[in-house]
């Protein structure tokens, strides 16, 4: 499965891409004609002021916006060359391949290990030893295993905010997605917990394609390979993170990055 996916993405050039994506909340157009490519095993940061559409865009990539009844999407989002908005596509399968970590840690009111096992269980996996192994593996990948290995059966709500967020990452990794979407994963955390999450992103990009929305320019500069700047529902500029932060092509980008607005 993984081999096949790799081949496909090579042929295509990109793991995921959007083509002329428009998004509407009722009559309000929140996204205008966004075309953006995401390379395999790279971190792409989406930056921009509040309300610029970066979170909305992120939520289009795993069709989380489907939950909003009055929303409408135009254009295409391709995952390994396949349009995820194709009516024949199974949303549940899509979300298993494109994992998501939310702004606020949202562990389920269950034990630590049940949180991680959740995705496997809804996938119909019942083999206990397999689940146990996968739970350990995922917690290790999320750099949480050492801290929770003695309290796997305790409630996840007893963990600290930073631990909860890493638990949510572990939970997402357990279903072995190809792409990981992160919506301001560190905005509710203290600096030390934030640093841990950033280190984790660094390590995870060896195996995953990561797209992260962030409010913090420093964070974008630290963790990402590419950066896309959104403003008023439009994609203003996109490129190598170094270039965007040192020699942006457009004045608007420069103004935002240097803190003149936003």
């Amino acid at each position: 499965m993984n081999e096949k996916v790799k081949d496909k993405s090579k042929k295509n050039g990109f793991k995921m891409k959007s083509e002329n994506l428009d998004f509407f909340y009722g009559d309000f157009q929140a996204l205008h004609d966004i075309s953006l490519n995401f390379e395999s095993r790279q971190v792409t940061a989406l930056i921009g002021p509040s309300g610029c559409g970066k979170s909305t865009y992120l939520r289009c990539l795993n069709r989380m916006n489907d939950l909003i009844p009055i929303s409408r999407v135009k254009g295409k989002v391709l995952l390994d060359g396949e349009n995820i908005y194709d009516p024949s596509l199974d949303v549940v399968m899509l979300r298993r391949r494109v994992g998501m970590v939310f702004q606020k840690p949202n562990p389920f009111p269950k034990s630590v290990s049940e949180n991680v096992a959740y995705g496997l269980r809804v996938n119909g996996i019942k083999n206990k030893s397999f689940i146990r192994e996968r739970v350990e593996e995922s917690l290790e990948k999320a750099a949480l295993w050492e801290e929770v290995k003695d309290r796997l059966d305790d409630s996840a709500l007893g963990l600290s905010g930073g631990q909860q967020q890493r638990l949510c990452i572990a939970r997402a990794l357990a279903v072995e997605p190809d792409v990981l979407l992160m919506d301001e994963p560190a905005s509710a955390l203290d600096p030390i917990a934030t640093q841990k999450i950033e280190e984790l992103i660094h390590r995870l990009k060896k195996n995953y394609t990561i797209i992260i929305v962030t409010h913090s320019m420093q964070q974008a500069a630290r963790v990402s390979d590419r950066t896309a700047f959104f403003y008023m529902g439009k994609l203003i500029e996109e490129g190598e993170t170094d270039t965007i932060f040192t020699r942006p092509k457009l004045r608007q980008t420069e103004d935002y990055i240097t803190g003149r607005f936003g």
Binding site: L67, V92, R95, F102, P107, F108, Y118, N123
Partner: peptide
Amino acid sequence: GLKEGSLALGATHWETIIR
């Protein structure tokens, strides 16, 4: 947040309600 967390892991609406 809890509901979205479950759906984002590939749970169906029904599984989300039950679990």
